[in-house]
Design a binder for these strands. Structure first.
Lengths: 216, 216
DNA sequence: GCCAAATGTTGACAGTGTCAACCTGCGAGA
DNA sequence: TCTCGCAGGTTGACACTGTCAACATTTGGC
């Protein structure tokens, strides 16, 4: 009984477990992830995945780890210009774009139910990296203004930007927003509106700069 | 074998199930909630809870419903003054205060893993109510300025405020923040900093107004 | 005092994560 | 070339879960 490509074994099987697990999560939610179902779909015994992962949580931790790594990479991807303000704005847009392009990964990272970070230290490495990308952008921004990049101030500003972006995105994905009886136009324009406000709060002049839309 | 107060029956048992379920969630997380464990702790048979709740998700939905109701009530609690600006700010502080005072409930409401809202329509009533409290505050704010309370604009501003507050709070509770190597002072001052910025973005002058601290 | 409805119990079934024991094929060392 | 070890896969078991079905018991209304 071979359900997928049969020859999967060794490292291939490990990789196949991860993709199949992601497929299950994508289709039925993280709480429905079952290693037995993964094994069933791959046509292997129910214990085969345990040769590559110590537990169900270890599978999840690896998926989350990769999601954070992708996320950090996405934040790094916009090329630097000589204008730190537009660079910072571009990073904000990259943040929102990633959240919309990969809602599943985003939900996994920030959705709440993730394995104990203490038990899976490598899982959060990408999270730290991503935050440091934001920190660095703000340091450049402050330096370009001739301001002293005070460590505490940078951290506060970075946290504010981070939390605003997270708030925007997570609000758009929360079930709650579907029940708020919003005017459709309000929802569509919200992201641009919010990004502009965050930019303004950070002292970035966004006059005339195009901010991305992206409904839903 | 009576583990708790024995006489629980009827509506009492229903209530006892809810408090015991909340205790389990508080101690071990929502994914560890087991109706059999609830029954065991209450000294009743494993099916007794099913006389009062159709399924595990229905228990959760009721807990979440009450959390939303409490939340809406907390947002309504600050008394109105004749100054809509300070009223709005007070509501923002009430939001953050509730999140810090009831982290478990807050996590349940906005943490991601909650029962299908379609299957539990009553669950989200409080969420709508809470959002309408914010809407009303902003309408008063705009009217006091002599601005036309444009429906779309109100919705956008409300969503921005909502998402910023949610961002602030959820960032403080995410596991992610523990791994960011922050200066302790940055974390302590962050809430006040963020509230002030959100107020500024909404055009509220917070000069001299005390904003709350509350360190996690 | 009786009947019916509400409530609680017992038993079963399918599904899950995970430990333990077993088998198997393959590559390194003799 | 033979053998031995071991990584990788399988089978079986156990304890746990949610939930259905059938039974028992309590209780309030007539």
């Amino acid at each position: 009984m071979m359900v997928r490509a049969e020859a999967k074994t060794g490292a291939d099987l490990r990789e196949a477990c991860l993709t199949e697990a992601l497929a299950i999560i994508s289709a039925s939610g993280v709480e429905k992830l079952s290693l037995r179902e993964v094994a069933r779909r791959l046509g292997v015994s129910h214990q085969a995945p345990y040769r590559h992962f110590a537990s169900r949580d270890h599978v999840l931790a690896e998926i989350v780890r990769r999601a954070f790594a992708d996320f950090a990479s996405a934040l790094r991807s916009p090329p630097h210009t000589d204008n730190p303000a537009t660079d910072t704005l571009a990073m904000g847009m990259a943040y929102v774009a990633f959240a919309f392009a990969e809602p599943l990964k985003y939900r996994l990272m920030f959705g709440g139910t993730l394995p104990e970070p203490d038990a899976h230290p490598e899982m959060m490495r990408g999270a730290r990296e991503a935050f440091n990308v934001l920190r660095a952008a703000l340091v450049r921004l402050f330096e370009a203004r001739g301001q002293q990049p005070d460590h505490d101030l940078i951290d506060r500003e970075a946290l504010f930007a981070w939390s605003s972006l997270h708030g925007v995105v997570s609000l758009m994905r929360t079930d709650a927003i579907d029940t708020l009886d919003l005017a459709p136009s309000a929802r569509a324009a919200f992201v641009a509106h919010a990004l502009q406000k965050v930019g303004t709060a950070l002292g970035i002049d966004v006059q005339g700069t195009r901010t991305t839309g992206g409904s839903q």
